[in-house]
Protein backbone atom coordinates (compact mmCIF):
# COMPACT_ATOMS: atom_id res chain seq x y z
CA UNK A 1 0.00 0.00 0.00
CA UNK A 2 1.62 3.22 -1.14
CA UNK A 3 1.38 6.49 0.72
CA UNK A 4 -0.68 9.27 -0.82
CA UNK A 5 1.14 12.40 -2.04
CA UNK A 6 -0.41 14.30 0.89
CA UNK A 7 0.98 11.85 3.42
CA UNK A 8 4.41 12.06 1.85
CA UNK A 9 4.43 15.84 1.79
CA UNK A 10 3.59 15.98 5.48
CA UNK A 11 7.18 15.25 6.32
CA UNK A 12 7.21 16.34 9.89
CA UNK A 13 6.90 13.12 11.83
CA UNK A 14 8.91 9.92 11.84
CA UNK A 15 7.33 6.50 11.99
CA UNK A 16 8.57 3.06 12.84
CA UNK A 17 8.10 0.24 10.37
CA UNK A 18 8.70 -3.48 10.31
CA UNK A 19 9.67 -4.64 6.86
CA UNK A 20 10.09 -8.22 5.66
CA UNK A 21 12.43 -8.87 2.76
CA UNK A 22 12.70 -12.15 0.90
CA UNK A 23 16.14 -12.56 -0.66
CA UNK A 24 18.28 -15.09 -2.45
CA UNK A 25 20.53 -16.71 0.10
CA UNK A 26 23.73 -15.85 -1.74
CA UNK A 27 27.08 -14.53 -0.51
CA UNK A 28 27.08 -10.82 0.15
CA UNK A 29 23.34 -10.34 0.27
CA UNK A 30 23.33 -9.22 3.90
CA UNK A 31 26.26 -6.88 3.23
CA UNK A 32 24.22 -5.39 0.40
CA UNK A 33 21.25 -4.71 2.64
CA UNK A 34 23.30 -3.34 5.52
CA UNK A 35 25.47 -1.30 3.14
CA UNK A 36 22.32 0.20 1.67
CA UNK A 37 21.16 1.37 5.09
CA UNK A 38 24.54 2.75 6.19
CA UNK A 39 25.42 4.22 2.80
CA UNK A 40 22.18 6.15 2.55
CA UNK A 41 21.99 7.08 6.20
CA UNK A 42 18.87 5.09 7.09
CA UNK A 43 18.24 3.77 10.59
CA UNK A 44 18.34 0.13 11.52
CA UNK A 45 16.65 -0.52 14.87
CA UNK A 46 16.76 -4.26 14.45
CA UNK A 47 17.71 -6.66 11.70
CA UNK A 48 17.44 -10.41 11.61
CA UNK A 49 18.14 -12.89 8.86
CA UNK A 50 18.04 -16.63 8.36
CA UNK A 51 17.39 -19.01 5.54
CA UNK A 52 13.71 -19.93 5.51
CA UNK A 53 13.47 -22.01 2.34
CA UNK A 54 16.57 -24.17 1.89
CA UNK A 55 15.22 -25.85 -1.23
CA UNK A 56 14.88 -22.54 -3.07
CA UNK A 57 17.80 -20.93 -1.20
CA UNK A 58 15.66 -18.10 0.13
CA UNK A 59 16.36 -16.11 3.25
CA UNK A 60 14.05 -13.78 5.07
CA UNK A 61 15.27 -10.53 6.52
CA UNK A 62 13.16 -8.67 9.05
CA UNK A 63 14.22 -5.10 9.53
CA UNK A 64 12.77 -2.56 11.91
CA UNK A 65 13.50 0.96 10.77
CA UNK A 66 12.22 4.48 11.23
CA UNK A 67 11.99 7.67 9.21
CA UNK A 68 9.62 10.14 7.61
CA UNK A 69 7.02 8.61 5.29
CA UNK A 70 9.11 9.75 2.31
CA UNK A 71 12.28 8.14 3.64
CA UNK A 72 10.37 4.95 4.41
CA UNK A 73 9.08 4.83 0.84
CA UNK A 74 12.67 5.27 -0.35
CA UNK A 75 13.90 2.48 1.90
CA UNK A 76 11.38 0.08 0.45
CA UNK A 77 12.12 1.15 -3.12
CA UNK A 78 15.86 0.90 -2.56
CA UNK A 79 15.49 -2.57 -1.05
CA UNK A 80 13.27 -3.60 -3.94
CA UNK A 81 15.84 -2.67 -6.55
CA UNK A 82 18.60 -4.83 -5.07
CA UNK A 83 19.06 -7.59 -7.60
CA UNK A 84 18.80 -10.61 -5.23
CA UNK A 85 15.64 -9.28 -3.56
CA UNK A 86 12.44 -11.15 -4.41
CA UNK A 87 9.94 -9.28 -2.31
CA UNK A 88 9.68 -6.36 0.08
CA UNK A 89 6.70 -6.25 2.38
CA UNK A 90 5.85 -3.41 4.73
CA UNK A 91 4.19 -5.38 7.52
CA UNK A 92 3.29 -2.29 9.51
CA UNK A 93 1.24 -0.89 6.67
CA UNK A 94 -0.20 -4.07 5.25
CA UNK A 95 -2.17 -4.77 8.37
CA UNK A 96 -2.07 -6.79 11.56
CA UNK A 97 1.07 -8.79 12.12
CA UNK A 98 2.78 -10.66 14.90
CA UNK A 99 6.15 -9.48 16.06
CA UNK A 100 8.43 -11.46 18.39
CA UNK A 101 11.89 -11.34 19.77
CA UNK A 102 13.81 -13.78 21.90
CA UNK A 103 16.22 -12.82 24.69
CA UNK A 104 18.60 -14.81 26.84
CA UNK A 105 19.17 -12.97 30.11
CA UNK A 106 21.81 -13.90 32.66
CA UNK A 107 21.38 -12.82 36.26
CA UNK A 108 23.93 -13.30 39.03
CA UNK A 109 23.07 -13.06 42.70
CA UNK A 110 22.02 -14.66 45.92
CA UNK A 111 19.42 -14.29 48.62
CA UNK A 112 16.47 -11.96 48.28
CA UNK A 113 17.52 -10.64 44.83
CA UNK A 114 17.76 -14.14 43.47
CA UNK A 115 14.27 -15.01 44.66
CA UNK A 116 12.92 -11.75 43.30
CA UNK A 117 14.43 -12.39 39.84
CA UNK A 118 12.77 -15.78 39.72
CA UNK A 119 9.46 -14.30 40.78
CA UNK A 120 9.57 -11.64 38.06
CA UNK A 121 10.60 -14.23 35.50
CA UNK A 122 7.52 -16.17 36.45
CA UNK A 123 5.29 -13.14 35.94
CA UNK A 124 6.84 -12.53 32.52
CA UNK A 125 6.61 -16.21 31.62
CA UNK A 126 10.37 -16.42 31.11
CA UNK A 127 11.91 -19.88 31.28
CA UNK A 128 14.99 -20.87 33.19
CA UNK A 129 17.33 -22.56 30.72
CA UNK A 130 20.48 -22.65 32.81
CA UNK A 131 21.07 -22.29 36.53
CA UNK A 132 23.59 -22.70 39.35
CA UNK A 133 23.51 -21.62 43.00
CA UNK A 134 24.55 -18.19 41.95
CA UNK A 135 23.03 -17.55 38.53
CA UNK A 136 20.09 -18.04 36.19
CA UNK A 137 19.82 -17.79 32.45
CA UNK A 138 16.28 -16.86 31.49
CA UNK A 139 14.83 -17.35 28.05
CA UNK A 140 12.09 -15.04 27.15
CA UNK A 141 10.06 -14.48 24.02
CA UNK A 142 7.77 -11.57 23.35
CA UNK A 143 7.41 -8.17 21.90
CA UNK A 144 10.40 -5.89 22.03
CA UNK A 145 8.94 -3.62 24.70
CA UNK A 146 8.10 -6.57 26.93
CA UNK A 147 11.69 -7.77 26.66
CA UNK A 148 12.91 -4.26 27.40
CA UNK A 149 10.74 -4.14 30.52
CA UNK A 150 11.95 -7.51 31.75
CA UNK A 151 15.60 -6.63 31.24
CA UNK A 152 15.06 -3.31 32.98
CA UNK A 153 13.64 -5.10 36.01
CA UNK A 154 16.57 -7.53 36.08
CA UNK A 155 19.16 -4.75 36.12
CA UNK A 156 19.13 -4.08 39.90
CA UNK A 157 18.86 -7.81 40.57
CA UNK A 158 22.30 -8.70 39.16
CA UNK A 159 22.00 -8.60 35.40
CA UNK A 160 25.30 -9.74 33.84
CA UNK A 161 24.62 -10.45 30.22
CA UNK A 162 21.91 -10.13 27.60
CA UNK A 163 21.69 -11.65 24.14
CA UNK A 164 18.75 -10.78 21.90
CA UNK A 165 17.78 -12.02 18.47
CA UNK A 166 16.18 -8.91 17.10
CA UNK A 167 12.66 -8.84 15.80
CA UNK A 168 11.03 -11.44 13.59
CA UNK A 169 7.58 -10.79 12.27
CA UNK A 170 4.85 -12.33 10.21
CA UNK A 171 1.53 -11.13 8.89
CA UNK A 172 -1.62 -12.38 10.64
CA UNK A 173 -4.15 -14.39 8.66
CA UNK A 174 -3.86 -17.13 6.09
CA UNK A 175 -1.95 -15.20 3.40
CA UNK A 176 1.77 -15.70 2.83
CA UNK A 177 4.37 -13.05 2.01
Amino acid sequence: MANSPEELRAQTHTEKRTIAVLVDNEPGVLARVIGLFSGRGYNIESLTVTEVDPENRLSRITVVTSGTPMILEQIKAQLGRLVPVHKVSDLTRIGPYVERELALVKVFGAGEKRVESLRIADIFKAKVVDASHEHFVFEMTGKTDKLDAFIQLMRPLGLVDVSRTGVVAIQRGAKGL
Binding site: P5, L8, E73, Q74, A77, G80
Partner: peptide, 13 residues
Protein backbone atom coordinates in the same frame (compact mmCIF):
# COMPACT_ATOMS: atom_id res chain seq x y z
CA UNK B 1 11.43 2.50 -14.50
CA UNK B 2 13.05 2.67 -11.07
CA UNK B 3 10.57 3.10 -8.21
CA UNK B 4 13.37 4.56 -6.08
CA UNK B 5 13.60 7.54 -8.46
CA UNK B 6 10.00 8.38 -7.62
CA UNK B 7 9.22 10.49 -4.53
CA UNK B 8 12.91 10.64 -3.69
CA UNK B 9 13.40 14.41 -3.63
CA UNK B 10 10.10 15.68 -4.91
CA UNK B 11 6.70 14.19 -4.15
CA UNK B 12 4.81 13.45 -7.34
CA UNK B 13 1.06 13.21 -7.70
Amino acid sequence: IDPSSINKNVVVD
